[in-house]
């Protein structure tokens, strides 16, 4: 499903990714952890072609991303991404945030888009907020709208970049619950998060990144309890 091979990415002199290789199967749930600046966000952004890679290959569901013949917007519509800072469109209601791309990219009718949007708002637990603007919603509610917006495109893969780290503690749970439900439904997910409880419960595999490389990976229980690498141990001792 996701096939990342030997990817390098630099910003000027900063080497954000230094040879990352990663395979994710359909339906697999992967959690990425690692210190700040280790390249976690950069990796997710490369998967969505928000950054172009310097070398290596990324193949999503059989489509190579750095092929100029590929319509990148088609590929993007298959991959949902949820950002740390929500990035809802502030000039649109929650409902319109969810319907806009359905109509303009997926070419659904207004009625169909709204029906899907309402059922997704139901699913993330805030059907009553359809007509609210982002500024009128709490952080947790905004993030749930953002998840619904991504899901409305019926993506095959969902990427989450620290979806709860901008939230107050009491709102983290409501967002994680939505993500757990998605996992139960079999969605292919890559989640950058330091919520260890979530990782233990949901992840098939946890990946530890440092300095632009994947240092260690394994099932959550194994990685958290018996890390093999010293760097992993040092990092885990700080956050656990």
């Amino acid at each position: 499903m996701i096939n990342v091979r030997d990817v390098y990415k630099s910003f000027g002199i900063v080497k954000a990714l230094q040879g990352v290789t990663l395979f994710v199967n359909k339906g697999e749930r992967v959690v990425i952890i690692g210190p700040s600046g280790s390249g976690k966000s950069t990796l997710l952004r490369c998967l969505n072609h928000l950054e172009t890679i310097d070398s290596g290959t990324i193949i999503i569901d059989g489509t190579p991303l750095n092929d100029s013949k590929v319509n990148i917007n088609k590929v993007r519509a298959e991959i949902g991404i949820v950002f740390q800072s929500f990035n809802l469109f502030p000039h649109l209601t929650a409902l319109r945030n969810i319907t806009l791309a359905q109509e303009k990219v997926r070419k659904r009718t207004k009625e169909e888009a709204e029906r899907i949007a309402r059922s997704l708002l139901e699913k993330v637990g805030i059907p009553e907020k359809a007509n609210s603007y982002p500024a009128q919603l709490s952080g947790g509610q905004q993030q749930r709208v953002a998840i619904a917006r991504a899901l409305a495109m019926q993506p095959k893969i969902m990427l989450f970049d620290e979806p709860t780290s901008a939230l107050d503690p009491e709102m983290i749970g409501e967002v994680l619950d939505v993500m757990k439900q998605l996992a139960r439904e079999g969605m292919t997910m890559i989640v950058v998060s330091h919520e260890m409880g979530f990782a233990r419960e949901v992840a098939d595999r946890v990946i530890f990144m440092d300095e632009g490389r994947i240092v260690e990976e394994g099932p959550p229980k194994e990685l958290f309890e018996n890390p093999r690498q010293d760097r992993t141990k040092a990092f885990l001792s700080k956050i656990l």
């Binding site: 917007n73 950002f83 990035n87 469109f89 791309a101």
Partner: peptide, 14 residues
Amino acid sequence: PKGQIEAARSLGFT
């Protein structure tokens, strides 16, 4: 904010 443009592009907008 840059995130607005990224959010739009990630939804597949041209």
